[in-house]
């Protein structure tokens, strides 16, 4: 049977209590809530093939946005992997609502179908690398100008990479306002056999989403011009941020160029039947 005297129990309890007390007071209870070894820098930049001055934003992921630091304390290198040419970029500080951003300037030509690398190196030697490939600079042709609004206008680009993304935008003027329509929402592009891309649209089809089917027709527009803009992006372009579903993205380095073409249409036809029926031959 267990028999312990009151005195012994008291002594044991007190000793245990004192031991615990003094042993635990010095116990470390600090935390390091910031991951500083894996997440280093974010890198965001668009490399425009048509521009000789591009900006690449580099942010220190371990520095809160309200930091007053005016120096990133990092070296940013820009390397053409096809030629091996490397240059160190200078930054310009831009402030948005009190938040300092470091935007590095790349001057000079950006070449199509070229691999580039941006390396950001911290003072302790840890670095972050971001790669990109610029798209080919496509020649393009336009068919279907000066025709009825109900007949297709066809754009053909001669070279588009497998992972490239092209965004289309068509604008027109009506009632002294400019209307813009993202064309890719309703016209799926077609790949051509020789590696190009073809996209077509009917001008009247561009008007309908704004006004209703055939409610406003081309002859009612301010002029007979449709401006078609396309932006050809290299691999890695995202239409929307997809962080929710995929891996977290702290870098986007995208090569691209932008082209604009004005398409003139025939606005003399006022109904589909009249222009595409017996009175009209394609």
């Amino acid at each position: 049977m267990m028999k312990l005297s009151t005195y012994r129990i008291g002594i044991i309890s007190l000793s245990a209590l004192l031991l615990i007390t003094f042993g635990m007071i010095a116990c470390d209870n600090t935390i390091d809530p910031f991951e500083t070894e894996v997440g280093l820098y974010s890198v965001y930049g668009g490399l425009d093939l048509n521009s000789d001055r591009n900006y690449i934003r580099v942010m220190d992921l371990n520095t809160p946005l309200n930091s007053t630091d005016t120096d990133l304390n990092a070296v940013v290198e820009f390397e053409n992997l096809n030629t091996g040419f490397t240059e160190i970029l200078e930054d310009t500080l831009v402030q948005f609502d009190g938040v300092n951003t470091f935007n590095f300037i790349k001057t000079g030509e950006i070449f199509p179908k070229t691999n580039y690398k941006v390396t950001v190196t911290r003072a302790d030697g840890l670095f972050r690398e971001v790669f990109t490939q610029t798209p080919p600079k496509s020649d393009y042709t336009v068919e279907g100008e000066n025709r009825s609004c109900f007949l297709p206008v066809i754009f053909t680009l001669d070279e588009v990479g497998e992972d490239d993304t092209i965004l289309w935008n068509v604008s027109f003027e009506y009632d002294n306002r400019i209307f813009e329509s993202p064309l890719q929402l309703f016209i799926p592009p077609l790949r051509t056999e020789d590696g190009g891309l073809q996209v077509q649209f009917r001008p009247q089809q561009v008007l309908d989403p704004f006004f209703g089917e055939n409610r406003v027709q081309c002859y009612e527009l301010t002029d007979d011009k449709f401006n078609v803009e396309f932006v050809h992006h290299g691999p890695g372009y995202e239409l929307n941020s997809s962080d929710t579903d995929g891996p977290v993205k702290t870098s986007r380095l995208i090569g691209f160029y932008r082209e604009m073409e004005t398409v003139v249409v025939d606005t003399t036809c006022d109904t589909y039947t009249r222009c595409s029926g017996p009175f009209f031959k394609e």
Binding site: D32, P33, E35, G39, G46, Y55, T101
Partner: peptide, 18 residues
């Protein structure tokens, strides 16, 4: 959960760093 980092994310080239 630890913090990986703080960032000002840009959807380039639609958004411009400058």
């Amino acid at each position: 959960t630890r913090i990986y980092g703080f960032d000002l994310s840009l959807l380039v080239p639609r958004e411009n760093p400058i």
